[in-house]
């Protein structure tokens, strides 16, 4: 089944309503849209976060996200996927990532949305640097993110 996809890596903010409206407009068969928005927190590992810098590998980032979406389209009956990831300098409460998925019924939309987000966390080449009162530091990868992605391994 062909699946409408939009993958964007950008500095500017995004608007959830606009993106959901876009997914609704592609086919009247859409009966469900699930979305996830990631937000910059003001604390991490007991430090105050003043700002966050996002670096990425241009080209490979878009390719790896597209690959994850292709896997989701094979696995679930979904009509459209929008993934937006912001880069550059972000502040606490800023939106950082959006994954939105449309399908006929909610089950496929919920599952595919979580799957895409879990794999994006471990496969897409983005790196976060936190600015704290003690100085700047690169964020370390978390084992819990690997476990979240491994849950989806085909048995």
């Amino acid at each position: 089944m062909s699946c409408y996809c939009s993958v964007r890596v950008q500095e500017q903010d995004f608007d959830l309503s606009t993106e959901v409206a876009d997914l609704r407009s592609h086919t009247a068969e859409v009966g469900a849209i699930a979305s996830f928005v990631g937000v910059v927190r003001d604390t991490n590992l007991a430090s105050d976060i003043q700002a966050m810098e996002l670096e990425h590998y241009p080209g490979m980032t878009e390719k790896s996200i597209q690959d994850i979406i292709d896997q989701a389209c094979e696995r679930w009956q979904i009509y459209g996927v929008t993934v937006i990831h912001r880069i550059g300098k972000l502040n606490p409460t800023d939106q950082i990532v959006l994954v939105a998925v449309s399908s006929m019924h909610r089950g496929d939309a919920f599952s595919a949305c979580e799957f895409i987000m879990d794999y994006l966390k471990v496969n897409a080449p983005f790196w976060k640097k936190e600015h704290t009162p003690e100085g700047a530091r690169w964020v370390d990868a978390r084992c819990s993110d690997d476990s979240a992605a491994e849950r989806w391994a085909l048995k």
Partner: peptide
């Protein structure tokens, strides 16, 4: 060829 640390996006 690219060398990079474990990824931390999302």
């Amino acid at each position: 060829v690219a060398f990079f640390p474990p990824v931390t996006g999302g």
